[in-house]
């Protein structure tokens, strides 16, 4: 590698999309967990060093997969993380996940109210990619998707769930969200051992969370939407 002894404008850097996404995420008070920063004992957010996701049950495993650092999910074992109180108002938030799986990875991401009651979760199943609540009042489904890595975006706002991947969107209405802060769960949906049928094999390379913002439709999130599109174009 040739190294130039000076700086160039950020727009000329090949990681400018990551930088934009990181900066914009930080500006709106969001969180980006990158598998490259993850350790079995704690997974700090690249955008906010005070936000550290903690292991839930069995020791998590980070390993490179298809040239990317990734959290490894194992069938029947809960090797996931939780980020406590990450979503202060679960009635409005959005998130994204960069993941890979050959067979259905099952639980990928969940937002679980602290005091229990109606968690929302994203699962990769035989039937497709499903984003729904536990009570079964709202459920959005898309095909599982193509490609070694998939970038899936979730939004929850005004009682409506939206799931987006590969340029497709699905949404569902009628969601009721209990008040109070919620945890973000990565790689599982239950906060405990057991529930083995919800735990499949897969990889997670990154998770974004934007509390209070619906990045799929809020007008003020246009720049973030653009940055996420840039990231998808260049780095997925």
């Amino acid at each position: 590698m040739l190294t130039l002894p000076f700086s160039v404008p950020e727009a000329a850097l090949t990681d400018r999309e990551s930088r934009d996404l990181s900066r914009l995420t930080r500006e709106v008070g969001g969180i980006w967990l990158r598998a490259a920063d993850g350790q079995p004992e704690g997974w700090p957010a690249a955008t906010d060093p005070d936000a550290i996701a903690l292991p839930v049950a069995e020791a998590p495993v980070f390993a490179p997969h298809r040239t990317r650092a990734a959290l490894r999910l194992t069938t029947g074992e809960n090797r996931g993380f939780r980020l406590p109180d990450a979503v202060p108002d679960p009635s409005r938030w959005s998130a994204a996940i960069l993941w890979a799986a050959d067979e259905p990875a099952l639980a990928l991401l969940a937002v679980r109210p602290e005091r229990g009651g109606n968690p929302l979760h994203l699962s990769d199943t035989e039937e497709g990619l499903v984003f729904r609540d536990d009570d079964g009042t709202a459920s959005a489904t898309l095909p599982r998707g193509q490609g070694p890595w998939r970038l899936t975006v979730l939004a929850c706002a005004d009682g409506r769930l939206t799931l987006a991947q590969d340029g497709r969107q699905a949404s569902a209405q009628g969601l009721r969200v209990p008040p109070g802060a919620a945890h973000l769960l990565v790689g599982h949906r239950s906060l405990r051992r057991g529930m083995r049928k919800t735990l499949g094999a897969g990889r997670i390379a990154g998770v974004w969370l934007w509390p209070g913002l619906d990045i799929l439709s809020d007008a003020e999130a246009a720049a973030l939407r653009g940055a996420l599109d840039g990231f998808r174009q260049w780095e997925v």
Partner: peptide, 9 residues
């Protein structure tokens, strides 16, 4: 292949 002080180019 080529990097500047502040990142890859």
């Amino acid at each position: 292949l080529i990097a500047a002080e502040n990142g890859p180019v």
